[in-house]
Design a protein around this nucleic acid. Structure first.
Lengths: 216, 216
DNA sequence: TATCATAGTACAAAATTGCTACTAAGTCAA
DNA sequence: TTGACTTAGTAGCAATTTTGTACTATGATA
């Protein structure tokens, strides 16, 4: 850590990958760029880091300015610093990933110009994104897949009260493979408790509603 | 990602946690600061990011300038951006961790002012480090512990030819717990192959030397 | 009221992990 | 030269976890 180069020409940006699951698909919030370069292309919501805010605060601001969401799950992902990432100037981008259930996102009153796009489609190349944002999303997608197994991130994608089939579907989408119902329930049982309510009106047998167990 | 703030007051540093295992202890390379602030304290080796280099290149440069080492294992750890990290100016520090076996480090002809310090001692608070470097090392130490189980980082701490007891010791130090010999060998067997050589002159039964299997 | 589709449970088979106890081999002291 | 010592390496069983199948339960719908 030195400060010998007194005139700094390197910009610091904070970009956010805001994931949610809707219609059984992993999706991400993108914004349509209104300026060059990549005018009209989709890009990750991001901000320039201010001197008076921490990295995480900048990430929270980015989410809030675009979607109105506050207090959602947010963790640092990776920092990208290739030379030609941004044609305007040398920019280092610290990325965060945020998770939310689609209900909160709908209710939050997001900007125009904010879209929810299927991550699978993006990774196939459609639509093409601005900057290196497709690669960033690919990296984030892989991280999510890894994190499912040794953390509780799956809960971030469902409402406070949820059914086990719902939660299992989240696991399956994040892992990209189907799970055995019986095994899934054994695994998840210590983490949840019944609310006493049922999810009815769905045709067929209704399922019990659970909530996340707090302590433990 | 915006560039509306044309005069950038935020510095970008790249700091490296260079770990090795020596005398059955996890150690880290620190340098003694020659300037204020924290003059005389130990700190992580770091550099200011140059406009013409990527983050990883800066990390490599930091390792090379201090220790002479090239081509060692290097991965990004985390980016620290609290407001008061550096009393001189707002500094975002992108950190990398590097791993090496102590043999390479000895042979590389490191600078004066470069020390190998026990990580356990540092985490206990002795010696006290400059900036927030103790917290960074704590974060890196935890990451190492987690990574052992689902990656091959342990191999980075041993020479090209190694014995299974040596490798097991590395696992034990990183995990902080003892492993059963028989299980360890079953787990590691698919990853290694015998070289045909033995490590002799050690008193007691000599052990076979192995190398890492390449493909697979 | 029977059928359908999904919710939820019981339980065996297979694989892995945890653990103990053994045999093997070189050094060193007598 | 030999036997004790200490570490290297292996065999194998017990306990647990994971994998998988097959069943029963329940409300909606026709």
């Amino acid at each position: 850590m030195k400060n010998n180069s007194s005139h700094q020409k390197i910009s610091v940006a904070v970009d956010v990958l805001l994931f949610t699951i809707e219609d059984d698909k992993l999706k991400i919030v993108l914004v349509k760029r209104k300026e060059k370069p990549f005018k009209g292309s989709f890009a990750l919501p991001g901000v320039a880091l201010r001197e008076s805010e921490t990295l995480k605060e900048a990430a929270e601001r980015s989410v809030r300015e675009r979607t109105g969401l506050k207090n959602i799950f947010l963790e640092q992902l990776y920092t990208f610093g290739e030379l030609e990432r941004d044609p305007r100037s040398r920019t280092v981008s610290v990325t965060y990933y945020a998770l939310t259930d689609p209900g909160k996102l709908d209710a939050s009153g997001a900007d125009d110009g904010v879209s929810l796009i299927s991550v699978d489609e993006i990774l196939k190349g459609d639509p093409e994104l601005a900057f290196d944002h497709r690669e960033i999303i690919e990296y984030g997608r892989n991280r999510l897949g890894g994190k499912v197994n040794y953390s509780d991130i799956a809960f971030e994608f469902v409402p406070k009260e949820f059914t086990l089939p719902q939660l299992q579907r989240v696991y399956e989408i994040l892992l990209g493979e189907n799970l055995y119902k019986a095994n899934f329930r054994k695994m998840i049982a210590p983490l949840v408790e019944e609310t006493g309510n049922m999810l009815t009106g769905m045709a067929h047998r209704p399922s019990k509603l659970y909530r996340r167990k707090q302590n433990n």
